[in-house]
Design a protein around this nucleic acid. Structure first.
Length: 548
RNA sequence: GGCCCAUUGGUCAAGUGGUUAAGACACCGCCCUUUCACGGCGGCUACAGGGGUUCGAACCCCCUAUGGGUCACCA
């Protein structure tokens, strides 16, 4: 009968067992994979779920590979594989084997695209038929609907099993006659399971989960000869010698099927780890991040916003193991790959994706980067997403690098930038042409000072500033100048006796700050003045004076 | 509905029979201060509910509630 169903299959399971030998890896090395369908962009949830197996493999000296599960041609999109490869590469997930492009791959356990593995699946399917563990089912969709309707009526479990498995015990002649008629068929598993038997899945994340044994005669091969997920999973992960199947927890409930498949095939089972989904807040309740409903969950969104890859990885690691944060505090400058991910420390219930936390983590990361690194990464981003900024940065390279170095590198670095799209707002006023634009409507000098005082301050300071001063000298000089115009040297003095002063040093500085930057808040004024250079300062002072 | 999983502050979460129930983010206040940012200090707010077991329960058991997943020739 096997030959009748699959006459073209001439290889044997042994052939493939030989072709894909056991991997020679050190003790404890894990072989893991990520196996997405090419159905669209990669979203945060998928990235999250991919980081885990990647870490498990690489931190154990094992192998991590990318397999494409394209057995559903209806849902596939064009360029889907490239999109996946590109997204994972961008987030520094390094695959040792698997797809490297739409049609290219590396590794000796391939093909890594399921649609290319039809013969392999059918070889094993043929064997199962020979052993009486699988059989063709000729039911039409209508037949199946009928069965389900009946089951619903009787309040029984829906599905194709036991007494409802119409073709389970068909004779050779019955099958042959259907085949001769040209009736299409799917290949079903002849499940030996009984639901009253309980099995235990020892899940690396969820712990021991007890479930009823599978008794469904699930579809192994669809009518087009392509396998379902279940069958492909068993065949592929066995032949590719996967040791740890780490996947979304939506698979947990079909794990009994998978366990059964491995048992029937006589293979050693992989360890399983079912990772909880990343959630999103919707109204007052949480729900799983959805590719279809949440376009903002696409990883490309975070690239466009300019969150550094490092920050996103950092945040994800933080969700994976909450002790990551502790580790990071102790090892602020280590690569995040130094952290050891521990599956048993993972939360079992699914975490909300928190943009605020990502932002905070990202600020910390960027604060620790050198000015040059910030420049390079920001420019790289700008070239793709903000051409104007990129030009500005390139045209004023040394200047920009200096600006980015303000208050950087010390014990208390600034944290103004969480993502590259913040850069423009942070330093835009340094560039003269943008400064012109920003101050078109005039300046916002401190409200408590009359224009005459503002003018006085500007006139006085224009000639006071000396680029050669070190910071203390500079500040002293400013204080003295302020005092000369009737300002208090410090805020405390002013508070004690407000009547005697026009304001305090803060007000004085504020005037200067607004005049040269067009805004009330800036990084340290001393550094700012220093970087801008005397020529630019004089020009800006003149401009401000004229505006009053 | 069946089967599974989950439920500690607004969020991420430590915690596995005896804790003043950590920490981080957010928020609020104060301090530092040339503004901002940083930093420091302090505050806010939590064991879903009910029964057991126990000298003692966030931790163990049962029930309920809520949320999630899954029950396809989709993955």
């Amino acid at each position: 009968m096997a030959d009748l169903l699959f006459p073209h299959i001439d290889k044997t399971p042994e052939y493939y067992e030989g072709k894909y030998p056991q991997r020679q890896l050190p003790e404890g090395a894990k072989v893991t994979r990520v196996a997405p369908s090419p159905t669209g962009f990669i979203h945060m949830g998928a990235l999250y779920a991919a980081v885990i197996p990647e870490r498990m493999a690489h931190q154990s000296g094992g192998v991590f590979f990318l397999r494409i599960e394209d057995t559903d041609k209806k849902r596939e999109i064009e360029g889907g594989v490239s999109e996946i490869v590109k997204s994972f590469a961008h987030y520094e997930l390094k695959f040792d084997e698997g797809m490297t492009g739409e049609t290219t791959e590396k590794g000796i356990y391939g093909p890594y695209k399921q649609s290319e593995r039809k013969e392999i699946y059918q070889t094993f399917a043929k064997m199962l038929i020979e052993k009486g563990l699988a059989y063709p089912c000729f039911c039409s969709e209508e037949d199946l609907n009928e069965i389900r309707a009946k089951q619903e009526e009787l309040k029984q479990n829906p599905g194709y099993y036991g007494q409802y498995a119409k073709h389970r015990n068909a004779t050779f002649d019955e099958i042959k006659s259907e085949l001769d008629k040209g009736t299409g068929f799917v290949l079903r598993l002849k499940s030996p399971g009984k639901p009253e038997n309980r099995i235990v899945i020892d899940d690396l994340i969820k712990g021991e989960v007890e479930m009823p044994e599978n008794d469904q005669d699930i579809v192994l091969l669809k009518s087009d000869g392509i396998p379902t997920y279940h069958f492909a999973h068993a065949i592929d992960d066995h032949l590719m010698r996967t040791t740890h199947v780490i996947r979304g927890d939506e698979w947990l409930s079909s794990a009994p099927i998978h366990v059964q498949l491995f048992e029937i095939l006589g293979w050693e089972k992989p360890r399983y780890a079912h990772v909880p989904p990343v959630l999103k807040m919707e109204g007052t309740s949480k729900r799983k991040l959805s590719k279809r409903k949440d376009p903002e969950a696409a990883v490309s969104y975070y690239s466009e916003q300019g969150f550094p890859v490092e920050s996103v990885r950092e945040y994800l690691l933080n969700l994976i193991n909450s002790n990551y944060e502790e580790w990071r505090m102790e090892n602020p400058t280590d690569q995040n790959t130094e952290f050891i991910v521990d599956l048993s420390k993972m939360g079992t219930s699914g975490a909300l994706f928190d943009l605020v936390k990502l932002t905070d983590i990202s600020k910390d990361r960027i604060a620790l980067m050198s000015a040059n690194k910030v420049y390079d990464l920001a420019l790289q981003w700008a070239q793709q997403f903000d051409i104007e900024l990129a030009e500005q940065m390139r045209n004023n390279e040394a200047y920009t690098r200096a600006i980015l170095g303000i208050e950087r590198g010390g014990d208390k670095p600034r944290k103004d930038i969480a993502k590259w799209s913040d850069v423009k707002g942070y330093l835009g006023y340094f560039y003269d042409n943008w400064f012109e634009e920003y101050t078109k409507e005039g300046y916002e000098f401190p409200e408590n000072l009359p224009n005459s005082d503002v003018l006085e301050v500007l006139e006085a300071y224009k000639n006071t500033y000396n680029k050669a001063d070190d910071k203390d000298t500079w500040f002293e000089r400013a204080k003295t100048a302020a005092e000369g115009l009737g300002f208090a040297r410090d805020a405390k003095t002013y508070k004690k006796d407000k009547e005697s002063f026009k304001g305090h040093i803060g007000d004085f500085m504020s005037v200067i700050r607004v005049a040269i930057s067009g805004r009330k808040n800036t990084p340290d004024l001393y550094e700012l003045l220093d970087i801008m250079g005397e020529e630019r300062l004089q020009a800006r002072f003149e401009k401000a004076i004229k505006s009053i």
